[in-house]
Design a protein around this nucleic acid. Sequence first.
DNA 1: CTGAAAGCGCTAACAA
DNA 2: TTGTTAGCGCTTTCAG
Lengths: 341, 341
Amino acid sequence: MAAERQNRPTIRQVAAHAGVGFKTVARVVNGEPNVAPATAAKVQKALDELGYVPDESAGSLRRAGGRTRTIGLTISNVANPLAAQIHGGVEAVAMAHNVATFAASLNEDPEAELAHTAAFLRRRVDGLILTAVAASQKYLQRAVDRGTPIVFVDREPVDIHTDRVVVDNAGATKIAIAHLARHGHRRIAHLGDLESIQTARERRRGYLETVRELELHVDEDLLVLDLPDELHAYDATRRLMHSPNPPTAIHSAQNLITIGVVRALRDMGLSRQVALVSFDDIPLGDLLEPAVTVISHDLRRIGQVAAERLFARINGDVSPPRKIVVPTQLLVRGSGEIPAA
Amino acid sequence: MAAERQNRPTIRQVAAHAGVGFKTVARVVNGEPNVAPATAAKVQKALDELGYVPDESAGSLRRAGGRTRTIGLTISNVANPLAAQIHGGVEAVAMAHNVATFAASLNEDPEAELAHTAAFLRRRVDGLILTAVAASQKYLQRAVDRGTPIVFVDREPVDIHTDRVVVDNAGATKIAIAHLARHGHRRIAHLGDLESIQTARERRRGYLETVRELELHVDEDLLVLDLPDELHAYDATRRLMHSPNPPTAIHSAQNLITIGVVRALRDMGLSRQVALVSFDDIPLGDLLEPAVTVISHDLRRIGQVAAERLFARINGDVSPPRKIVVPTQLLVRGSGEIPAA
DNA sequence: CTGAAAGCGCTAACAA
DNA sequence: TTGTTAGCGCTTTCAG
């Protein structure tokens, strides 16, 4: 029942309309030299009258290198503010290169990762910027071997050696925990994201190492892992604070977890008693009371750097794969400086 | 200097490898009938060994209807949390239809609107979901005539008659102002977004009409328009509250403006004196003190509905263009219920 | 059930 | 300066 569609003029129809060979039209469209001004004008007129719109994909079919001037991007979720910042960074660079971006959300679903990368590859994208969600990215080796550059963002991929742009998750966590310890805390809880996420594991590692190094209280109950969302973080916080031996400080290791923790502490009236440092900034974190001390990182920059790396590869850079670490920053705002009871 | 790329097997190479005609391979790849099981197995083996990845764009070149299974989406800014929600809604529907989405940010730049829609059209997207930013969308008429469906989101387009999914901006503003009036306010300020934005003009209209209807104070100083960002909103609020005759309530007509207003009131210590209703929800708006009363709308739903409309058109729906109004909701949280002094 | 021929809209290579 | 021929990787059509 589809409408009569796609009745767009082809280059040959334009040529017929202008009374020239179609190659001449192609020359005008692509700004190639060797067209007499008079001819060019005639062609341009036909172009305008018919409203010619070149078909990029048809062009890239034969074009040397077969570039499609598209890239594919997968992020954890386009509607997650942090992930959206990565998207913004990538997009700015892609736009500057006159390249269109396919964007897709994964929502931590490995199947989605496979499906979307396959779809991008079928569309012959010139490169991929990916957030690793599946347990292994080995399946992408063939694509890399065939010359599709891939840059991973935010998380380290597994079983594949390519460029990646990440932050020092363990190191930054160390700084967060040490900051709390400096304010007298010995019982510090760590609320972590899904263990399937590489950055979550790194943050946990940073926590455990620092607890050992600084000889803080070691207590299984203080380590809460695998929190899938804000609600679970909320419940976990309540349980934690109602336990016989509650922590005096909390390290919440992801933005949504932090929001759950903040809500829970607020509801229990503990916002000003229990110290809190968040890994990831949260929106309006500086306007809450107390304002939330966070480990912040520039996600837009991660996206930008990744895209720049990708375009370098697309343009022939064959240097060894690089791991680029974008700096993090501890933003001291109040919640992290509450002293131990 | 480009690497040796694009050495992917073609359908003919797979056919040679399997010792069959290439049409037989195409049958297997596309799940067409009339292939002997033994032949199919042989072909499948070759497919796997060579790692065949079909070229979607080459396929759509000849395919009936010429569908590319891609759509184009432009939003005000991918990194804006509200716009990202629209993206999320569109994406979910597109994914269900097995269609890839090109996404681009406009940042209120009319040039960007023209450039991106042109780029999408050159890539022969099956449809467009657009946020109107330019003064007129007349330039898209030819694309529509040629059968590329377009659905506008969030803002009404100009000079073109197509499907659109919007909210009742003037009506919702009316509700906001009336809400403030019900709490005794007569001097209500309106801080508005850029006047080039259609929704900003509608919200202003709703404000002015309600002021007249309810016979509230009319004062040019209470109407602050064309605020481009949070910082300008911050400054405008300070100026407003320092004026000889300051308002007792503020209607901030966009999410970023609200954040500027909240910061300013906070810094002036007026958060609990001056009532505030925001058009657009803001992140953690319920955790601020006081929590912010807002006009909220489901942007994810806007994206979803728009995408569903688009796919209906792509699949042949030729009913008259529809204007779909998604409901808004007044979320009463505290800031809007502060009584007049 | 299988395959060969034609052609989608364009670019590349070469001829006039 | 211009036009012609080939062919990109696939789908369509039609012949075996």
